[in-house]
Amino acid sequence: MEVKFTERGFARIDFIDRYEVACSLQMSSLASEEAIWFGCNKAEPKILVHGFGWMALTMPDNYIANTRMHLTRQQVAELLPYLQCFVATGELS
């Protein structure tokens, strides 16, 4: 992984998750406090169709989905022990 910068100068790391979904970790432009964006870059909604499995779901043009978490430094600090535990043990606790 490599830190790159957006056109507006915000640090961003792009990566692919376990299911080949494009994701990112990016500094937020939030002016009131330091925060990051973290998650999938775009929604890829699917529906389970009996006998066929998961099928892509066509959404209307005016559809929007929030796919990335907007986390403050405090929220990241609260999650870190669980993430570190998972790295060390494969568990959350």
Rank of each mutant, 00 (worst) to 15 (best):
R8Y: 11
R8S: 15
R8D: 15
R8M: 09
G9K: 07
G9A: 08
G9F: 07
F10D: 08
F10P: 01
F10L: 11
A11Q: 02
A11Y: 04
A11K: 09
R12H: 01
R12I: 15
I13A: 07
I13S: 03
D14S: 10
D14P: 00
D14R: 12
D14A: 04
F15L: 10
F15G: 05
F15Q: 03
I16L: 07
I16C: 02
D17W: 07
D17F: 05
R18D: 14
Y19F: 09
Y19C: 02
Y19V: 01
E20S: 08
E20N: 13
E20W: 03
V21M: 05
V21Y: 07
V21F: 03
V21L: 07
V21T: 14
A22T: 08
A22L: 10
A22R: 12
A22G: 03
C23M: 11
C23H: 11
C23D: 12
S24Y: 15
L25Y: 09
L25S: 05
Q26C: 11
Q26D: 02
Q26Y: 01
M27C: 06
M27E: 15
M27D: 10
S28I: 07
S28W: 06
S29W: 08
L30R: 08
L30F: 05
L30C: 05
L30V: 03
A31C: 02
A31T: 07
S32F: 04
S32R: 07
S32C: 03
E34H: 05
E34P: 01
E34G: 06
E34C: 01
E34Y: 02
A35Q: 11
I36T: 02
I36R: 02
W37R: 04
W37H: 10
W37P: 00
W37F: 12
W37C: 03
F38H: 03
F38T: 04
F38K: 02
F38P: 00
G39Q: 06
G39Y: 08
G39I: 11
C40K: 14
C40T: 10
C40G: 01
C40S: 12
N41I: 06
K42F: 10
K42R: 13
K42Q: 13
A43T: 03
A43I: 04
A43D: 11
A43L: 07
E44V: 07
P45D: 15
P45H: 10
P45R: 12
I47F: 03
I47T: 12
L48T: 03
L48H: 13
L48E: 14
L48D: 09
L48N: 14
V49S: 02
V49P: 01
V49C: 02
V49I: 15
H50W: 07
H50S: 13
H50P: 00
F52P: 00
G53V: 04
G53D: 08
W54L: 11
W54E: 15
M55Q: 15
A56N: 15
L57D: 13
T58R: 11
T58S: 14
M59C: 10
M59R: 08
P60K: 11
